[in-house]
């Protein structure tokens, strides 16, 4: 404690604060909190750039990843992030755990807390499941994607990637195109983008565009819905394509994959309508040739791989903030 006095705070620089036990969605995050995550991620990106991109800050902390749904990048990204911070990591999936024997979510979460989990990264097919888990454990819960509801760390890493290229997001136009209805990525992105001051255009077939999201921007009308991608692309600073789950075709929400490609694929001709150098993004995994053309996915304006790399830094930041802000 005395060490604090070694660098007294002169002037009125108020230290940013983090008081959240859980990170379940981005809708509750203030601009200052988002800013704190971004600034912390800057420091983490620098750590990752070193010859040994690893620190021991969170040694003694245990991070459990609990994935009831399959995942490559999110789970691996959290694991790499936790290890880069010096934490111990336990990975659990629904198959091969007691979940298969019928253990309830609440019992599983309590068991993990008893084992010594400090932070729980959870993915679940049911929207809201991490909220239920968070209410039944003292461990901090990070939502790694729940149903069609939210994916907060994806939204934070997307915002971080945009900021690295565009600076501030104030007044920038971000187009999110595809299956918005089923996209937890789109939902969480809307909140961070609005908080950062961007205008959001959601684009896709009318069957995949929830009307209720039009009011997400409040009275400012900063969320626009449109079924016309060519129009939406005009003056876009960022174009984010969402994955089309092929099984949606069976539900009749899109007439045919071929028609979807014709009307909604992010390709060179459409990208040319956006601002020169507009960022091309995708949360992954991509169906190249369906929602995004391969030459665009791997083109000069694509930051898709950078999103993945930034994801580690942003998740290190989130783990750091949540692990150190925990009250004893």
């Amino acid at each position: 404690m005395l060490d604090v006095q070694e660098r007294p705070a002169a002037g009125a620089v108020e230290a940013p604060a983090w008081h959240r036990k859980d990170l379940l969605d981005t809708d509750v995050l203030s601009r200052a909190e988002v800013e704190l995550v971004m600034e912390t991620a800057d420091a983490m990106l620098e750590v990752r750039s070193r010859p040994v991109g690893k620190v021991a800050t969170l040694r003694g902390a245990t991070v459990v990843t609990l994935f009831y749904e399959q995942s490559t990048r999110t789970r691996a990204s959290f694991e790499v992030a936790a290890k880069a911070m010096g934490a111990d990591v336990v990975n659990l999936t629904a198959s091969g755990s007691s979940v298969e024997k019928g253990e309830s979510l609440i019992d599983t979460v309590r068991t993990l807390e008893a084992i010594g989990a400090d932070l729980l990264v959870m993915r679940h097919g049911k929207s809201g499941a991490p909220y239920l888990a968070a209410r039944h454990t003292k461990a901090g819960v990070i939502n790694g994607g729940d149903g069609t509801h939210a994916h907060p760390t994806q939204a934070l890493l997307d915002l971080y990637t945009m900021r690295r290229h565009l600076g501030g997001l104030e007044g920038k136009r971000v187009v999110i195109v595809g299956d918005v209805l089923h996209s937890r990525v789109a939902r969480s992105n809307i909140w961070t983008l609005l908080t950062a001051g961007a205008d959001v255009t959601l684009c896709g077939p009318a069957t995949l565009l929830p009307r209720t999201l039009a009011s997400a921007g409040g009275e400012h009308g900063r969320v626009t819905l449109t079924a016309n991608l060519d129009e939406a692309m005009a003056d876009a600073d960022v174009v984010m394509a969402l994955r089309i789950q092929k099984e949606r075709q069976a539900t009749g929400l899109i007439p045919s994959l071929r028609e979807y490609i014709n009307v909604y694929q992010v390709n060179a001709a459409r990208a040319a309508k956006a601002k020169p150098g507009a960022l091309i993004m995708h949360p992954g995994p991509m169906n190249e040739g369906i929602e995004i053309a391969p030459d665009i996915a791997h083109g000069v304006d694509s930051v898709i791989e950078e999103q993945v790399a930034n994801g580690v830094a942003v998740r290190m930041a989130v783990l750091y903030l949540m692990a150190t802000a925990r009250t004893k």
């Binding site: 060490d3 230290a15 704190l36 003694g60 750091y320």
Partner: peptide, 20 residues
């Protein structure tokens, strides 16, 4: 900030900046 010996005791994260 990432190397302090009181990281777990402070109850609040120390603000971090990139080293150069």
């Amino acid at each position: 900030g990432l190397y302090r010996d009181d990281v777990a005791r402070r109850g609040q994260p120390t603000p971090l900046r990139p080293s150069s």
